[in-house]
């Protein structure tokens, strides 16, 4: 088990926890073959903890799927494998081999194409290959404007496309889980959580997260107004560019060449919460993929991105 709980849950977190557990149970009961999308990030760590809670003393009745673009931070992969071993859960790792063969990567191909091929397409491949009819994700409605309008049970048409105008009304705690042929469901138990809620929960529950979230001296280069970590020797340095050691941390984790670090001394969940309370920069700013085009998240979602 992960460490014992250190603090009693405040009333609002207890409410969010119960809601998420109810959603996980409902989906597990209604779908033929669900899967939990595990991105290794903090939201995934919380989601995984909630899945353990929902089905205790049994194990969660679904496997965990990681879409590996091969460009994740090395610490993320180590954490992923260690977590799977520690919790003894079934972990499926999928990489878009065709994309690799075509030489798609975040540096030469650009973030938009890389995300499309190695994340969106890869996810669709994995869901289709295993015949999963529902996938849990850790997305939250506070992350981005089009997410704010997404349902907790979000139906995807053939090809996993999202049509924001054909969403089912969602009333009370009643979820319409029925699917027609070719349709699948994305389920978001953390819809009503905020970034601060996630960190408060991690702190109260003592949930392990990837150390990259906490400040440490790391080798970084300055690009487009953000710090990019030189995680391995695949990151080509521009003329005159030299990695320097900075005390940085990440608010979100993804492919390392696309994840911007912030300079911060926050070294624990409590520090991060304090930092967030005075935060002036929103979480997705560190994600280079969102800025690609106006309404870019909505477009990616329409195409099947999580």
């Amino acid at each position: 088990m992960d460490g014992a709980r250190r603090r009693p849950l405040p009333a609002d977190l207890r409410q969010l926890e119960s809601e998420a557990i109810g959603i996980l149970r409902e989906a597990a009961a209604e779908f033929r073959k669900p899967v939990l999308l595990y991105s290794i990030g903090k939201d995934s760590s919380v989601l995984l903890r909630l899945a353990l809670k929902a089905f205790h003393p049994a194990k969660p009745p679904f496997p965990v799927l990681h879409i590996d673009t091969t460009w994740k931070f090395r610490e993320m992969i180590a954490f992923r494998d260690q977590t799977a071993r520690r919790l003894q859960i079934e972990l499926i790792v999928h990489t878009n081999q065709e994309g690799l063969d075509r030489g798609i990567n975040p540096i030469a191909s650009g973030s938009a194409l890389h995300t499309q091929v190695m994340k969106t397409e890869a996810l669709k491949q994995a869901l289709d290959r295993h015949g999963f009819d529902a996938a849990f994700g850790g997305a939250r409605r506070d992350e981005e404007k089009s997410r704010a309008k997404e349902r907790i049970f979000s139906i995807r048409g053939p090809g996993h496309s999202w049509n924001p105008r054909a969403q089912r009304p969602e009333l009370w705690r009643l979820f319409n889980t029925r699917l027609s042929p070719g349709e699948s469901m994305r389920v978001f138990p953390l819809s009503n959580w905020t970034e601060i809620d996630v960190w408060r929960y991690i702190e109260c529950e003592n949930i392990p997260v990837v150390p990259l979230y906490f400040a440490k001296e790391r080798p970084v280069v300055r690009r487009d107004g953000t710090w990019i970590m030189v995680d391995d020797d695949r990151l080509p340095l521009l003329p005159g560019e030299r990695p320097e050691l900075r005390r940085v941390r990440f608010r979100t984790l993804g492919c390392y060449p696309l994840s911007g670090a912030i300079e911060s001394p926050a070294a624990s969940p409590a520090d991060i919460i304090a930092e967030l309370r005075g935060a002036t920069v929103s979480e997705r700013q560190g994600r280079l993929i969102d800025g690609d085009a106006e309404a870019s998240m909505e477009r990616k979602k329409r195409e099947g991105y999580f």
């Binding site: 409605r141 404007k145 704010a148 309008k149 924001p164 009503n192 905020t194």
Partner: peptide, 8 residues
């Protein structure tokens, strides 16, 4: 559409 917002 209904949008959900959060503040505290």
């Amino acid at each position: 559409d209904v949008a959900y917002r959060f503040f505290s």
